[in-house]
Nucleic acid binder design. Structure first.
Lengths: 237, 237
DNA sequence: TAATGTGAACAAATTCACAGCC
DNA sequence: GGCTGTGAATTTGTTCACATTA
């Protein structure tokens, strides 16, 4: 089997989410073209993505919504329930815990840890917050996925302890690059990075407009901006 | 100028975050190799990423931490302050509002909107929650970036209104593919998708182990799983 | 006949490797 | 001597185009 691109896996999630809306609308069959439009990609991409895993369609007809949904759930490993531990019961952690949407697919947060004495013992959405010192005992190899929602400074230590406790996949919200051993899956959500990408896009749109107005080539303008940093800025520290 | 890959922009953010830790540690110069290690990439990648925007290093020496930081801030458009509007003051919205980390770089949430009468008028971290009907008036072309933190069903309508109100960049947390006109930048954070990627990784690790144990080829095992969906599942709807 | 599944063509991104410079 | 900057080679991912089949 060819290696499956990460972007394909991401798109499969999107397809599944879209497919699950269809039965209630009375749609029982869908063509790659239609699915692609809804997912913001191309028909060829949809077919290629699926072809990594088998053949699910009927030529001349399209895909059966229900069978394809089942297949995608199977491929994505959503047929079993994954037990999830949350570390960090701050604003963000609690928001995740309460966000029912995320758990519809068989993810269940069944343990919450924090270091803050004021939070320990409290219940959040039915789950008791436990002291972080109990982390290793509390997980006891029964958990696969952990969500790290602690401050940046604490994230690496937490991750190390999670791995030691048998966790094999981490969803990291702390703005640091976690160092993990082979075989532990990692996904990161870094909102600062996303915002900065938007900032880049906006700044460049301005630059592009500027270049347009002045009749310069974009690269010249951009180059001048890139160099606009103080040349002897060392003194500025 | 060659087109800059989106992944390069993302990495520039990461480099900047890393560079900003260094001065306090007394580090004033860094080689691409070292920066790469910290960022989880390769030295060549670091150099290539930077080379899109100019030349910032000294051969034989590396990069000056402070000048490179300045250059990256300039490239990413972080020298000016961006005014940000938040739509949706639910759990997640409030968590974002309170998460000081995100705003260190010149992003300021200065307007918050919601439809829930109980939330309207309340103050969240110093910002008054305004009714969503005031969205168009309230923004009045003074805002560049909006954060969409509303339920999936409301997201597209909110996005349309934001665009009409002059917003040119959207950070979307709702699990839908927003349809936006050309020229409006979009970044999405979809936690369900990230979790499902982890699920896929875990499920495949199991499959790989299984294949190993049974002496089969991975593709055979995977294929059998992909096909494991009910063949005549149409009746199951 | 309409739409899939897929090799082949293409495009994009990453890595290599080395000339050039501090 | 050590490390950058970059074209060229390679790898990875996407799109095309068409034979195939329900």
């Amino acid at each position: 089997m060819k290696k499956v691109p990460g972007s394909t896996v991401t798109r499969l999630s999107v397809y599944l989410r879209l497919l699950e809306e269809l039965p209630s609308q009375g749609v029982s069959t869908i063509a790659s073209e239609e699915l692609a439009t809804r997912a913001g990609t191309t028909a060829a991409q949809v077919r290629k993505d699926l072809s990594f895993f088998g053949t699910f369609g009927k030529r001349g007809l399209g895909y059966g919504v229900v069978p394809l949904s089942s297949a995608l759930r199977s491929i994505l490993g959503l047929e079993r329930k994954w037990r999830v531990a949350l570390v960090g019961a701050g604003q963000l952690g609690r928001a995740l815990l309460g966000h029912a949407e995320f758990w519809r697919q068989g993810f269940a947060i069944e343990a919450v840890f924090d270091t803050d004495p004021r939070k320990i013992g409290q219940r959040c959405y039915g789950v008791r917050v436990r002291p972080a010192v109990e982390l290793e005992d509390g997980l006891g190899r029964g958990y696969d996925i952990a969500i790290v929602a602690v401050p940046a400074a604490a994230a690496q230590e937490v991750a190390d302890r999670l791995v030691a406790a048998g966790i094999r996949a981490i969803l990291n919200f702390a703005p640091v690059k976690l160092q993990l051993p082979e075989g532990v899956a990692l996904k990161s959500v870094n909102m600062a990075v996303e915002l900065e990408s938007l900032s880049f896009a906006l700044a460049n749109a301005r630059v592009a407009a500027l270049a347009d107005a002045e009749g310069k080539r974009l690269d010249e303008v951009l180059a001048s901006i890139a160099v606009a940093a103080p040349p002897q800025a060392k003194a500025a520290e």
